[in-house]
């Protein structure tokens, strides 16, 4: 179809203008801010080159430790959510009559907001009146009760568990959609040939679920690295710095202490880490898809 360039530009103008001003310009500005000592005051910022980045690689409490915490959190969420999602999807796949109802039910926690889920689970984890300890006590597991969010070794997995609980239903729905696209003759002939359930999973189902595995791990990994709301509500990074993930540190640097320059450098670092990890993960899993 013919359209004069002027007309095309007219159609594009509102979107280009808003997007350039509100997304692209601040992104570039953020890259620049990360090279300054800006504190957001009117006096303006001084260009200091890569000083923020040099400071970062030696900054244990403000960067390296939160980065490690974020990576552990993302790993816990990615593995937990993928394994549980896969298990639930295969289970639902066997039971056509229950499938739709179970999928909707498992999807529900992910429809709630992170803020509300964070508050509700903070109460569930509460050592005195929280539901989890009361439940454990009522089934005779009193020795298991503890202050779930108060002990450094348990706080991070406890927060990760909430994240997994919310979104394992999403992962399961994606695996299930993939599973239902596998030709049923394949699964039937495997059973007729005498393959055990485990063999069928290992040699047929799991390889054919490779596309869903790629997209699921990519989504959970990115989500895990960008975690903010749950620890913000549930632990504020504590106890000590056990759950202080990078985004909490960035939020605190920028809006708590007004260190826009250093905060921006941290966001750029996080962006680069996310891009690198997803690139590595995608390349590895895509090549795996082709091989199977």
């Amino acid at each position: 179809m013919r359209m004069r360039p002027q007309t095309a530009l007219l159609f594009l103008a509102p979107a280009l203008l808003l997007y350039s001003l509100i997304v692209i310009y601040p992104t570039l500005n953020g890259l620049y801010l990360s090279l300054t000592n800006s504190t957001g005051s009117a006096r303006g910022a001084i260009f200091i080159g890569l000083t923020n980045y040099e400071r970062m690689v030696h900054d244990v409490s403000g960067f390296l430790k939160p980065l490690g915490t974020t990576l552990i959190y993302a790993a816990l969420v990615t593995v937990g959510q993928t394994v549980i999602g896969l298990g639930l999807a295969l289970w639902m796949g066997q039971l056509p009559r229950l499938r739709d109802a179970a999928r909707v039910a498992l999807f529900t926690p992910g429809m709630l907001s992170l803020i509300i889920v964070g508050f509700v689970w903070s109460f569930i984890y509460n050592p005195l009146s929280g539901g989890l300890n009361l439940l454990l006590t009522s089934v005779g597991l009193e020795s298991w009760t503890r202050s779930w969010l108060g002990e450094p070794g348990f706080a991070l997995p406890a927060v990760a568990l909430v994240n997994i609980w919310m979104y394992a239903g999403h992962s399961a729905a994606i695996f299930l959609a993939n599973y239902l696209s596998i030709p049923s003759e394949l699964l039937e002939s495997a059973t007729l040939e005498g393959a055990s359930v485990w063999q069928r999973f290992l040699y047929i189902e799991f390889p054919l679920l490779a596309p869903a595995l790629t997209i699921n791990t990519a989504l959970t990994l990115i989500g895990g690295l960008r975690v903010f709301e749950l620890p913000f509500v549930m632990t504020r990074g504590g106890p000590g710095d056990a759950t202080r993930v990078l985004n909490l540190e960035i939020f605190n640097q920028a809006f708590g202490q007004g260190n826009y320059g250093y905060g921006s450098a941290l966001t750029v670092a996080l962006l680069l880490i996310i891009l690198t990890l997803t690139l590595v993960q995608n390349t590895y899993l895509r090549s795996r898809e082709l091989n199977t």
Partner: peptide, 12 residues
């Protein structure tokens, strides 16, 4: 990611 945009966007 929105965190990259938020700090400069706040000033803007």
């Amino acid at each position: 990611p929105s965190f990259v945009v938020i700090i400069p966007l706040y000033s803007l």
